[in-house]
Design a protein around this nucleic acid. Structure first.
Length: 437
RNA sequence: GUGAUAGUAGCUCAGUCGGCUAGAGCACUAGGUUGUGGUCCUAGGGGUCGCGGGUUCGAAUCCCGUCUAUCACCCCA
């Protein structure tokens, strides 16, 4: 092959498109049924939108170009800066809270791996303008609601919930210097991925005081929120953070998804801008990858030139979602095209009538097709089956003599005659199943 | 961007101590079948063995480079 798709990009053949659409449909339906509305923005943005948020290093990790006017542009690596820009532009007039979702195509100039490509789709859910644990809880609920949509059980996926604020205040209470927190988050985020010795070494570099390290390791290993609460006498700010996490967990219980959710002090997220609740969903199967992640980012809109306005949200990629569904055999079947009716002539002399009937059916919203070649009846039926069709409509001698057509249910093999006029007047009620959606 | 492993038909793979026109299953196309499909039988198309170079009388097979994929780093927005 002389020409290939570029590295880390995918071709979507019709069967792949079916899977992708099934995931998009789920994302869209779940978003809508939770009260979110869809938005979108440009794929290309000014490069500084991303450097303002993430610093200059980000440039190495995204595709960027200079246009003919000398402007530095970038293919969007994520949606949040665009969201912030759009919200900031109309922040005075948008009714709050803003509940928006988006399914953007995004680009990252990284080395591709499983679950991680250079071109991918992301599902983004954000609530802007509501500083209340209820918003955090609802955001998490939406992610879990998607798992339920696909039939994923609490035995297959888990939503781990934590709070940056809680971790921060715990560490301050335990004697950690405030300036050490950001580098600590980065190390803590990788705790499960690195060997124990490497973790200890990295930790010792940030926290030279061994007694502080020991206290931290002890307290961060506490399995439940109740354990944390009773571990020692915490400062008021720490106590407030505990109460806030408890509220989120209580709301999720009340919403009926408590079984999916668990408190986990190990989830801190690598990103610098998270300010409160953070969460990550994981497969409980072999897939050792986070399938969606997010949290509260109350500073970001201000950093990007807007007012101080609270926000919480998450993102999840179609690549990881597909891997997750595949792992549990929940990918929708690749059934081929869906047709309602395949119209067949038993004799080439009926072909012109066939075309008229196909035209009339299509006008009524019936997904109808036919064979271009005048094949024997058996071959046309075979073509109907291969097209994934519910019904065949046969035109034959009976059509010529009595103006009736024969409708054959391709699933059961049963067939019956129907006057042509009746079929065309009420095609949906005369066809075995399917019909316009 | 760094390192490791792999690449044979659309898919899953056989074939390598270097040797004749490179194979199978599935899929695809056609026929068996002039008014009844899914099964079955037969035949066919499809490969510069990822690409380029080297060694050799001779390379799918050995060597180098490169591309792509996978894995570990980096990063994970």
């Amino acid at each position: 092959m002389k020409f290939k798709a570029i590295k880390g990009a995918r071709d979507f053949y019709p069967p792949d498109m079916e899977v992708r659409n099934a995931i998009f449909d789920a994302w869209r339906e779940v978003s809508l049924r939770n009260g979110f509305v869809e938005y979108d923005g440009p794929t290309l943005e000014y490069l500084d939108l991303y450097t303002a948020k993430s610093g200059d290093e980000i440039v190495q990790q995204l595709f960027h170009l200079t246009d003919r006017g000398g402007r530095e542009l970038a293919l969007r690596p994520e949606m949040t800066p665009t969201l912030a820009r759009m919200v900031n532009a109309q922040v005075a007039t948008l009714p709050k809270p803003i509940k928006w979702f988006c399914i953007p195509r995004c680009y990252r100039a990284e080395r591709p791996q499983r679950g991680r490509l250079r071109e991918f789709f992301q599902w983004n859910i954000d609530i802007v303008g509501l500083d209340d644990p209820l918003a955090d809880a609802e955001t998490i609920f939406v992610a879990v609601d998607l798992f339920r949509w696909f039939g994923l059980s609490p035995r297959q996926v888990v939503m781990k919930i934590n709070s940056r604020e809680l971790v921060a205040h715990m560490l301050l209470d335990l004697g950690v210097d405030a300036t050490r927190l950001p580098p600590l988050y980065a190390v803590l985020d990788k705790r499960d991925k690195m060997p124990r010795a490497a973790f200890d070494a990295a930790l010792a570099e940030i926290l030279p005081d061994e007694s502080v390290r020991r206290a931290m390791n002890e307290h961060l290993a506490l399995p439940t929120l109740a354990d944390v609460r009773s571990a020692r006498t915490w400062a008021p700010a720490t106590h407030d953070a505990i109460v806030e996490v408890q509220k989120v967990l209580d709301w999720l219980d009340r919403w009926g998804v408590g079984e999916y959710c668990t408190f986990d002090l190990g989830v801190v997220r690598g990103l610098a801008y998270y300010t409160g609740i953070v969460f990550e969903a994981y497969s409980k199967g072999g897939l050792k990858r986070s399938v969606c992640g997010g949290g509260r980012y109350d500073e970001l809109l201000r950093v990007l030139g807007g007012p101080e306005i609270p926000a919480v949200g998450f993102a999840s990629s179609d690549v990881v979602m597909q891997d997750l569904l595949d792992e549990f055999n929940l990918l929708p079947g690749r059934g081929g095209q869906r047709l309602d009716a395949y119209v067949i002539d038993a004799d080439p002399s009926l072909f012109e009538q066939l075309i008229s009937i196909v035209g009339a059916l299509r006008e009524k919203g019936v997904r109808a097709d036919f064979s271009y070649r005048r094949l024997p009846l058996g071959k046309q039926l075979k073509a109907a089956s291969n097209a994934g069709c519910a019904a065949a409509i046969l035109l034959g001698q009976e059509t010529r003599d009595r103006d009736v057509v024969t409708i054959k249910d391709l699933a059961t093999g049963q067939q019956r005659e129907v006057p042509r006029e009746r079929l065309l007047a009420e095609p949906v009620s005369n066809l075995p199943r399917g019909g316009p959606a």
